[in-house]
Structure formats: C-alpha cells, structure tokens
C-alpha cells in the first residue's frame, strides 16, 4: 500500500472525509473514482499519474446535492487553484474540500512531475503558417502585426465546431444559464458559430476565473489555442487590477465595486496605420 493509499484509507476511516475523489485503473484506463467508507477496501486500487479530469467539478456536483458533505480529492496545483476560485464564487464552502497534493507542473521544487501537459504537442506547419502556435509565449503572440494577429485568430476560431467542450470541461464554469446558449447573443443553426463573438464572450467570462489548467485546449476537437487566449485574459486582469486568479480567497475585480474608482476612461488605444 502506497503512502497516498494509506492516507486516503485513514481519512475515510477517521471520518475526516465522506467521499474521496481520485483515480483508479479500469480496463487499462486511469479513470476518476469516488472512494467511500462503505467500500474502503477499494483504496488499494487508488493510483496517481498523468490522468487529468476536473475532480473539483465533481466536487461541486456533490456539494450542490449534499451541502454538508466533506469531500476529499487528490489535487495538482491547477486543481487547488480551481478550488480557490470555486470557493470565492460560493460553489464550495470554505474548508469543505480537503486535498492531498500530488505532483504537477515541473519546477525546481518538483522534479517528479505528473501532468499530461508536460510535453505540449508541437504545432504542425499549417498551424504555424496560418494559425496561432499554442506553445508560443504571450510576448511572442503580441509581436505580430495587428492585421496578421487578427487573421491568425480568425483562422483558429473559424475551425470551431461549437461542441461547447471548452465550457463543459471547464472546472470553473458553473452557471445554470450560459450566455453561449442564449439565441439572442449567439446565433444558432450555423457553423462555425458567430466568430469571434462566441470565443470572446467566453474569454471575457474567464477574466478573473480561468486558472490556466489547459483542460479546454485539451478537450477542443479543433485544437483552438484557447489556453493562450485565456492566459492573455488573465494577464490583462493582472496588469490592470493586480489580481492573481486562483491564488486566494479574494473576489475578482469584476465582481466588486471597490471604495472609489481607481481608473479613468482610457483614451482610444493608439492605432498605428499598418
């Protein structure tokens, strides 16, 4: 029995958590599994590894039906950030979710990293020629001329098949009524959807929420570099308001008025004639 299996076993036995969300192997696939006290022997099969599902989303589903349930889960850094955001937005009670930290993104502190995003797929030549390379940095994406930037983003967006996968998989998307399904805001019955409105509406809603887990890009059948877009969204939020999404328990800048206005209307952004 590994130490993490032992820990989960103890937590369930002691009643520290009622349900524990982690992974186990099913027919060769690492799949999420809910470990409970009734079936405590199953903890022997708990595994960790590069599998990534939004466990925190399952936690919100449990919490909406059982508000007093004590939930445990294995958490990478992105899971932890998502839990912080869900708590800020009142989807989980403070302290309701107990986490067992597991390996995540590589860093000096964490040499043994487990994440499907460790080695991003290199972009093919068509994407490099016409689209936005998902592996480029924000600074690189900003250096292209405006017209080219626009063309490249529109090329990416025009591939959208409107599967709503980015929204469905997103751990911090929890609204009952989604703007993306409102027929007055997003036209229905044609593909691609209204671009770039569809993607920009979602990008705006990600401001102060997106925790950069990359699940949306992972789930996108059209391989739109959504993570790059939302990274920019949160870089803007950080530059303008100094708010670090997912870091703590403060409300994001778009949901609080503040004591007094701290900004003044911007003049039109200077546009060079390209």
């Amino acid at each position: 029995m590994t130490s993490i299996q032992q820990q989960v076993h103890t937590w369930l036995e002691e009643g520290r958590v009622d349900i524990f969300l982690a992974y186990r192997m099913v027919e060769g696939h690492p799949l999420p599994h809910a470990f409970t006290r009734e079936r405590i022997d199953e903890t022997d099969t708990l595994v960790t590894g590069p599998a990534r599902y939004s466990l925190e989303k399952f936690a919100t589903h449990i919490a909406s039906r059982y508000p007093d349930a004590k939930i445990g889960m294995v958490a990478r850094d992105c899971n932890q950030r998502a839990l912080n955001v869900l708590q800020v937005w009142n989807q989980l009670k403070p302290g309701q979710v107990d986490t067992v930290p597991v390996n995540c993104c590589p860093s000096l502190l964490k040499p043994h990293a487990d994440c499907s995003y460790l080695e991003p797929k290199p972009a093919g030549h068509v994407k490099l020629e016409r689209g936005q390379d998902p592996n480029q940095s924000l600074a690189q994406a900003d250096t292209l001329p405006r017209a080219e930037r626009f063309d490249r983003w529109m090329y990416e967006f025009s591939k959208c098949i409107k599967c709503y996968g980015c929204r469905n998989i997103c751990p911090v998307c929890f609204c009952k009524d989604c703007s993306l399904e409102h027929p007055d805001l997003i036209g229905t019955g044609h593909l691609p959807p209204d671009i770039p409105i569809f993607h920009l509406v979602r990008a705006v809603h990600m401001a102060g929420r997106c925790i950069d887990c990359g699940l949306c890009e992972d789930a996108c059948p059209a391989e739109i570099p959504l993570r790059l877009l939302y990274r920019k969204v949160n870089a803007i939020v950080k530059d303008l308001f100094g708010y670090e999404t997912g870091s703590g328990d403060t409300l994001p800048p778009f949901s609080i008025l503040g004591d007094k206005p701290t900004m003044s209307p911007q003049p039109l952004l200077a546009v060079s004639q390209e």
Binding site: R146, M263, L269, A270
Partner: peptide
C-alpha cells in the same frame, strides 16, 4: 464596473488585432 470591463475589453480586442474600435465616455 463598466469602466473596468471596457478597459479590459479594449486590451483583449487589441490582442485579437481589433484595436481602437471600442470607446467609452460618460456624457
């Protein structure tokens, strides 16, 4: 709030390559 959102949106549209087409003014 509007100011915050509009300033944010101006930056986002600039990233998309659509700068200068959004303006906010109180009159």
């Amino acid at each position: 709030m509007t100011l915050k959102r509009m300033t944010f949106l101006q930056h986002l549209l600039d990233f998309m390559g659509l700068a200068g087409r959004l303006h906010l003014e109180w009159i």
